[in-house]
């Protein structure tokens, strides 16, 4: 009763607020549009720069009226770009698959089974998550060097094959799967691995989508560790190769921007495919706490 009267009274009793109701959204949308323009300007500039001739690059702030493929020709003539792209695709896909497999399996075990050593394992995992990875650089380099794997892809694939963060994400999502579903599978004669493959993985699809992007992005953009262990140019991934090109052709701005644009596209494409799962997966851990 009280509530209804207040609701009914408000617009009449407060004409100023009613006016604000029309002005405020207008203002907010204006602010949002301006901010979006500022955020997107560097990316738009990048796209324009990749298609501008050297003379036009700084002559026109954004797009030039004479778009050209000049930068791309320079880029592909000077450097084995296809090789770098293939390297990056191989390393990032392999790391993503490895991390997906190890994280979903371990996440399943930690969510749905009781086994010896489970508590201490989880404690150690959480403890290592608190520790920044840079402390591992020197000892891992020493280990990889001892194994004779410097300047090979094993140096990237072995230490990168697992993600503690990924296991925690998968464990949280698999905890939501009802036990009855798994028991039904067991009654039907499924082995535990078939339960993982035919029940757990399909129902965790949103998490698989989210983690695929998280893992792929991390691997694709990874720089410090590959910079330390890769020495041969034919093994370089895109971030390493592009950083190298800055020193080699510092005046070829346009070609560098073409390379940068090319390097961003695969992640952007994957994001376009998986954005819904990604944004939900990103925050799920934090919101559920």
């Amino acid at each position: 009763m009280e509530k209804e009267r207040m609701k009914a009274n408000r617009p009449m009793a407060n004409p100023a607020r009613r006016m604000g109701g029309a002005v405020l959204p207008f203002l907010v949308h204006g602010v949002l549009l301006a901010l979006a323009a500022i955020m997107l300007a560097p990316l738009f500039w990048l796209v324009c720069a990749a298609f501008k001739s050297p003379e036009d690059l700084f002559h026109y702030t954004f797009a030039s009226p004479h778009p050209t493929l000049h930068n791309w020709r320079v880029l592909f003539e000077k450097e084995p770009v296809f090789r770098y792209v293939a390297n990056s695709l191989f390393v990032s896909s392999a790391l993503t698959l490895l991390q997906l497999l190890t994280a979903s399996l371990a996440g399943f075990a930690l969510a749905k089974y009781e086994f010896w050593g489970k508590r201490p394992l989880m404690t150690v995992m959480l403890a290592t998550m608190m520790i920044p990875g840079q402390v591992l650089l020197a000892p891992t380099y020493k280990l990889i060097n001892h194994m004779g794997l410097i300047d090979t892809y094993w140096a990237l694939l072995l230490p990168g094959a697992v993600s503690v963060f990924g296991i925690i994400l998968f464990r949280q999502s698999i905890l939501q799967v009802p036990d009855d579903l798994l028991d039904a599978g067991r009654i039907d004669g499924c082995s535990e691995f078939r339960i993982y493959w035919e029940i757990i993985l399909p129902v965790s699809r949103p998490m698989v989508g989210a983690f695929t992007l998280i893992a792929f992005m991390g691997a694709w953009n990874s720089f410090l560790w590959p910079q330390i262990v890769l020495q041969s140019r034919h093994l370089f991934t895109l971030p390493i190769a592009l950083n190298n090109m800055v020193d080699l052709y510092s005046q070829e701005y346009g070609a560098l921007m073409a390379g940068t644009l090319l390097s961003i596209l695969p992640v952007a494409f994957l994001f376009a495919l998986l954005q819904k799962e990604f944004l939900a997966g990103l925050t799920s851990g934090a919101v559920k706490g």
Binding site: T102, L105, A106, L110, Y113, E192
Partner: peptide, 11 residues
């Protein structure tokens, strides 16, 4: 469960 965590634990 031991087989499932094994690849992770080894690495």
């Amino acid at each position: 469960p031991y087989l499932f965590v094994a690849p992770f634990v080894i690495v």
